[in-house]
Design a protein around this nucleic acid. Structure first.
Lengths: 127, 127
DNA sequence: AAATGGTATTCCCAGACAGGAATATAGATC
DNA sequence: GATCTATATTCCTGTCTGGGAATACCATTT
């Protein structure tokens, strides 16, 4: 993966927030909407941008799509994601996202990584 | 310094090359031209871009302008520059720049950091 | 003052991209 | 099949940016 490509992905605030939150674990689009408090188009487009360049992976899980950081990131990506987390550790704007994420997790018990039941997810709404 | 700003600076190949070479020490524009083998406008514009955002510092030295990494980089910048050097250590395209830089240094004995003589630099050409 | 060398700026164009509104698609439920 | 939820895509617009040609600017030398 080209280093320039990585930086192109990192040079937008929304995408930084997405990746920062994703470091905590996989998440679906509607959760991102809640955590970032941004409209669906915006979230979906930026996730698409990241996905097209290999910065995130996605898999459909019933009705919704779960995004995650790559299972096997390149060395450059791994280094930069670590650097990113490090640099954002004290940034209040990004910490607010994490706070909303934790609030979400406490009310929503869905395990985003559990295997998908054969025919149905068994739940109508995400959270 | 905003982290996003740093990434915006890093998301162009030419600017990556500039910063990578700059890590070896201060350099003037005409040297960059030789090291990167790119036209003057391109070099000058990208250096201007980096300078406007605080990623590099510049000072006139007689007839030419010497660029350098900031004397006191922010924590985020320092971390990312280190990460950058680390990621590029094996990239042949960037190593070629360093090779040209060393060739330049062997033929050009100007000390870019030496204090500027009061009235004249004493040399007509840069190298 | 004129000439010269080094650097920055302006003007132009083409492409990328962010944002939002509206619409389309996919899967699940009824 | 109709409906609903979740997600993606299309269309539009404004802004930013990269590249190059030409030119302006600044300092030095003659």
């Amino acid at each position: 993966m080209e280093l320039v490509t990585i930086y192109q992905c990192l040079c937008d605030l929304t995408r930084l927030r997405l990746l920062h939150v994703l470091a905590q674990g996989p998440l679906c689009v509607c959760d991102f909407q809640a955590v970032l408090a941004e409209p669906q188009v915006k979230i979906s487009k930026h996730l698409g941008y990241l996905r097209a360049r290999g910065l995130v992976e996605a898999k459909r899980r019933g009705n919704w799509v779960v995004y995650a950081l790559p299972a096997k990131p390149s060395a450059g990506l791994r280094a930069n994601l670590a650097c990113l987390q490090d640099c954002l550790a004290d940034d209040p704007r990004f910490q607010r996202d994490l706070a909303r994420l934790r609030r979400l997790e406490s009310t929503c018990a869905v395990d985003k990584l559990a295997p998908v039941p054969a025919t149905s997810v068994g739940r109508k709404r995400c959270c």
